[in-house]
Design a protein around this nucleic acid. Structure first.
Lengths: 125, 125
DNA sequence: ATAGCAGTTGGAGTTAACTCCAAGTCAAGC
DNA sequence: GCTTGACTTGGAGTTAACTCCAACTGCTAT
């Protein structure tokens, strides 16, 4: 697959794909004889993984660390597991915070709805 | 309350508090005769609100818009309600994505645990 | 064989959201 | 009256994560 195909499929810009490769979030992608990137299904799955983790909020730095461990081979299995587990815990925390914030917004919206019905009050902020 | 008191109470740096005021996320904070900020309980509650929304991911720009509407008075009640409702929907979406990502990480971690037990396999990434 | 387009590279530029700095002010204690 | 320390301001600097650019290469179709 060419870079534009992956770009469309994963909805990530070619520039971002090249950037991810440059900083080590994709192991070096094979090139055709003409020097053009030729993504495999594997590469594609990895791009999807990176995209998913990035949009959940994992930093580039953490993902670099993960793939760097990967390159070092089987001896880093435990370290990688632990890295993922730690990030999982971070997400869990953000998950609960997000839940609370949504509840808070629900309450605030309900206060607005009341104010709108009574057509008189102003709120504090 | 002085800026350093609020800073401690809300765990936001004085620089950030001044920045928020400058860009309109806090209505102008009263000063003492000597020109020093003197935060009220109200201000404090607003700081808490901003902090909560910011850490949930609402942009400075959206919060600026919200407080700008606020300054325009009661006529913008509906607009503010709708702005909050829209942001709430965004958060709800991110909430579900986060849930999925956590599940995905759980699965990946379980795969790692299996690999660690069998002490032989390497994973794809 | 040439026009045109998709791709390549290294490196510069952009954006959001802070964060830091220099120069100055003010109240309090010695 | 002078030092100290917390505060003030406007504005410059930083960081993460892209995003854009210029100059170039190499297929493909006319």
């Amino acid at each position: 697959m060419t870079i534009s195909e992956i770009s469309k499929k994963c909805n990530i810009s070619p520039d971002t794909l090249r950037y991810y490769e440059k900083v080590g979030l994709l192991s070096y992608v094979n090139r055709t004889s003409g020097g053009i990137r030729n993504y495999t299904e594997q590469d594609c799955a990895q791009v999807e993984f990176v995209k998913c983790m990035r949009s959940a909020g994992l930093s580039i730095e953490v993902l670099q660390k993960y793939f760097e461990l990967f390159k070092r081979g089987k001896s880093t299995l435990k370290a990688r597991r632990d890295l993922l587990a730690k990030e999982r815990e971070n997400l869990q925390m953000r998950f609960r915070e997000l839940q609370d914030t949504i509840k808070r917004l629900d309450y605030k919206i309900s206060v607005y709805d009341k104010a709108l019905k009574s057509k008189s009050k102003e709120l504090k902020f």
